[in-house]
Amino acid sequence: MLTIAGLSRKQRERFFLGGKRLPSKHCLGLAALSAKEINEILENAVPMKQVISRDIKKVPALRGKTVVVLFYEPSTRTRVSFELAAKHLSADTVNVSASTSSVVKGESLVDTARTIKALGADLVVLRHPSAGAPHLLARLIDVPVINAGDGMHEHPTQALLDIFTLRERKGTLKGLKVVIIGDILHSRVARSNIWGLTKLGADVHLVAPPTLLPAGIERAGVTVHHRPEEALVDSDVVMVLRLQRERQRQGLIPGVREYARMYGLNAARLALARPDAVVMHPGPINRGVEIADDVADGSRAVITEQVTNGVAVRMSVLYLLTLGRGA
C-alpha cells in the first residue's frame, strides 16, 4: 500500500469517510476526555480566537445549523457565551430556558428530548441542576450534546477556557502549581478543572475546610490542604471558587465572615504565590467573601480574559462536534 503523501485532507477524507454520517460525539465532561482530545479542543480554539478579534467576527462554518441552548438553571454568562459562539460560527440559536418553557410545567427531560429531536436541532447545549442529565439526553437523541454544567458533576467548557487561558499565559500546564480554593464539594467547575489540569500535567492543590471537600478527592491525584497559607507558597495559578451564602445555613461552614477570614484570597495571601502568579475566578464574584476587591481588580487577575476565551473555546467545541455529522 502506498502512503498517500501529497493529498489534501479533503481528498483523503473523500476516500476514507466516503460521505458517511458518523455517530454523535458529545462534550459531557473532562473526566471522559484524554489529554489528546483536550489539546485538540484547545488548539482549535486559537484560530477561533483570531476570528473573534477581527472586524468581521463571523465565519460560515455552521451555517444552516441549529443550536438549541437549553437551560434548566438561570445563568446569563454561560448562556450568552454559548449563543455568541454559535452565532460567530453562523449557526442559528434557539434559547429554551426553564422560566419560559414547558420545563416549569413539569415536562420531563425525556419529553423535551423528543421535542428537540422533532425540531431538528443539530446540537444541544444543556445546563441542568441534576448531575448526568446531559448523559441522559445524549442517550435519548442522536444529536451532539454539550454539557454546560450539570449539578455538581462537570462544567467542561468552563474548565477548558480556564486551561486555555493558562496555556496562553504560561505556555504549558506541565508542572504548573495550580491552587483551587473554595467550595470544592459543590463545584462542578472545580471538578472539571481537576480532571483537565491533572491530565495535562499540572500539580493541583485544593484548599477548603473538610466540610467543603468531596469524599475521596485525594484519589484524583491532587494534594489537599485546609489552610491557604500552606498551599499558596510558590503557586503559579490561584483559582478562586464562589462561595454560596447558603452553605452557612446548611451547616457546612460556621459563618461567611469566618470563611472570608480563613479562606478569602487577599493581597497578603496572594503575596505567598509566585510574583507572576495569575488569579482566576469562574464568576460571578462574591467580593469580600472568597476574594478581596483589590485582588479581583488587580493586575494578576485574568478574569475578563477568561470571558473572551470562553467564547473561543466554545466555538471550538461546537465546531468539533459538528464534524462528521453529514450535510
Binding site: 473526566a31 448526568g132 449539578g151
Partner: peptide, 15 residues
C-alpha cells in the same frame, strides 16, 4: 454511596 465515585459523578453520597 459516598466515595470517590460519587465525587467524580457529582452525585450526593450516602455514607
Amino acid at each position: 454511596h459516598e466515595g470517590f465515585t460519587s465525587t467524580r459523578l457529582g452525585l450526593r453520597g450516602i455514607p
